[in-house]
């Protein structure tokens, strides 16, 4: 199946993949070739995909994933507001960012969702980066 990951800054991945695991809003899910047409909202996390060369890990932000059947097989389109290859993540900077985001959240007395949202987004992205880097490094 043909996997395309696109961000507002351009294509991140365009590859033939054998399997992929994505962070859905309701939990992680896997997609294998021959999957039925499907659409899901993604939350920040790690998207992994397996190709002939091995498994790769991507940190991704909010987005959507669509599986569609086209004439020459399946295609999976992933649209995310940001994304980064696990091997490109600056792990220390991401960990510092995660700690800073946690501290900011802990300090905040705010109860309003609108005020907490940017802090939570910041934390979620940093956590995704750390995890993607960690899982890339473990292999």
């Amino acid at each position: 199946m043909h996997l395309t990951v696109t961000t507002p800054r351009g294509y991140l991945v365009q590859i033939e993949a054998e399997e992929l695991v994505a962070p859905g809003l309701l939990g992680e899910f896997g997609v294998l070739p021959g999957h039925i047409p499907f659409m899901s909202v993604l939350k920040p996390g790690v998207l992994s995909y397996r190709t002939k060369e091995g498994t790769k890990y991507l940190a991704v932000g909010d987005g959507i994933l669509q599986v569609a059947r086209v004439t020459d097989g399946d295609k999976v389109d992933v649209l995310v507001d940001r994304g980064e290859h696990g091997k490109d993540v600056d792990r220390e900077a991401a960990q510092r960012e995660l700690a800073a985001a946690d501290a900011e959240l802990a300090k905040s007395k705010s109860e309003s969702a609108a005020e907490l949202k940017p802090m939570q987004d910041r934390r979620a992205w940093a956590a995704a980066q750390v995890e993607a880097a960690g899982r890339t490094g473990a292999h």
Binding site: I36, P37, M39, V41, V70
Partner: peptide
Amino acid sequence: TDGDGSEFLYEPGKDQILDYVLTL
């Protein structure tokens, strides 16, 4: 288009997907 027009499966639900996708 090149899709075969088959019905999609939506997660979480179709309404949430519509809200999210159309706004975006």
